[in-house]
Amino acid sequence: MDHFPLSWGRPRNDALDAFNTYPMHKRPTHHDTFADGVQRTQQPIVTGTSVLAIKYKDGIMMAADTLASYGSLARFKSIQRLHTVGSSTVLGASGDLSDFQYIQSLMEDLIIEEHTAGDHHELGPAEIHEYLAQVLYSRRTKMDPLWNSLVVGGRKDSKNFLAYVDLLGTTYSSSSIATGYGAYIAVPLLRNAVDGRENTLTEEEARKIIVDCMRVLFYRDARSLNKFQISTVTDAGVTISEPIQLETTWSFAEGIRGYGAQTQ
């Protein structure tokens, strides 16, 4: 790095040296820092796959595996993608994980800011979701998106909340939500199990639905891991489990040519 500020160049207008910092004949040949354009638009680098979430009788349940992929490389195998915000919200992220870590820091700043007001108000899941929607939408409008699909779940004042927001600022809420491959593979299973039963499903039943879907995803999504965490938000508050290791069976693959190991 060139630490001499005058070598950094100034944007455009190299015709004059407004502050006469250099004698004219000694002025360094100008280099326009922005000649090649500025880099904003990115692509996701280290990514997380699906997040699943459903509503049930006493709250919401969310799950995400612990894998952070670098392309097709399973780069980090123990990364947490569920994040508690305040005391009644959980935030699950798929997509770029460095962007997610930035969002986590935004959430921390936001909660501290609200706490310092000292008015004993705390942001609930609906407010967190609205905030994130505004952040993600304004970043897409600047053509500098935060490359994530986020699920916000929570329970406040005995009301369940579950909603989605993505890099375009698109939002929606539903009694079951899944991001990434989960939107194709898990959503039909989740809707089948949850729709119309949001207020009667027990935590045990909800957990079985979620675990079943995570298993299906592990079998079919090549960027997933059989190690995941489950989070719940109920009147009792937010819990995020320790990583759960899934029991999986592959014996059936033996009989399927092109699936298991080939012997000839």
């Binding site: 375009l168 929606y172 194709y184």
Partner: peptide, 30 residues
């Protein structure tokens, strides 16, 4: 993919005006 079966796109603005918005949902809501 159906994201949700209930996302309103018609909104009451005043007692005499209602606005319907269709296209890119994020732009519409904003």
């Amino acid at each position: 993919s159906i994201q949700t079966r209930y996302a309103p796109k018609v909104f009451r603005l005043t007692d005499r005006a209602v606005l319907a918005v269709n296209g890119f949902a994020a732009d519409g809501n904003m």
